[in-house]
Simulated scan of single mutants.
Amino acid sequence: MHPIRLTSFGYLHLPTGPDGSPVPPAADRIEDVRARLRDPAAARDILDLDGLNPRVQDVVLNTPGARELLANLADYTDLPAGPSHIAIGCAGGRHRGVDRTTARHAGDERIPRMA
């Protein structure tokens, strides 16, 4: 398996194109989790934490649809002509996207991390 670069980003912090829409980073696959996963910032006591915090990671991983998304991304990385770069974006880039790219879940969920 080849190394895969994972990037987390926040749509609210992206530059905008001529039409005013956000311009996500260039990647083989861009996963917008804003509609797929509920906003963990709405959960109690984690608003001031980021996706590197285990409490945030637990909330995100236990969000309905999170495990299915990870399984889908893992299957995608296993394709013969699989990606070299996956970007995962949420609203602010602080909770959902960061958590999906952490080493804790990258290893546990078979999404490889950069060496």
Rank of each mutant, 00 (worst) to 15 (best):
M1H: 12
H2I: 14
P3I: 00
P3Y: 04
I4S: 05
I4P: 09
I4H: 07
I4E: 02
R5W: 10
Y11S: 04
H13V: 13
L14G: 12
P15K: 04
T16N: 13
G17L: 06
P18Y: 00
P18F: 00
P18N: 10
D19S: 14
G20K: 01
S21K: 13
S21P: 00
P24W: 06
P24R: 08
P24A: 11
P25N: 10
A27H: 01
D28S: 01
R29L: 15
R29V: 13
E31I: 10
E31L: 13
E31Q: 03
D32S: 09
D32Y: 04
V33Q: 01
R36H: 05
P40E: 09
P40D: 12
A43R: 06
I46K: 03
L47M: 06
L47I: 11
D48I: 07
G51T: 09
V56P: 01
Q57K: 00
V59D: 11
V59C: 09
L61A: 15
L61H: 11
T63H: 07
G65V: 02
A66K: 00
E68S: 01
L70M: 05
L70W: 08
D75V: 15
L79Q: 15
P80H: 05
A81D: 15
H85W: 12
I88M: 10
I88V: 15
I88F: 11
I88W: 05
G89I: 15
G89P: 12
A91P: 01
G92P: 11
G93V: 10
G93C: 02
R96D: 06
G97N: 09
V98S: 02
V98M: 07
R100C: 13
T102R: 02
R104W: 06
H105V: 12
E109W: 10
E109L: 12
R110K: 10
R110I: 02
P112L: 09
R113E: 05
A115K: 05
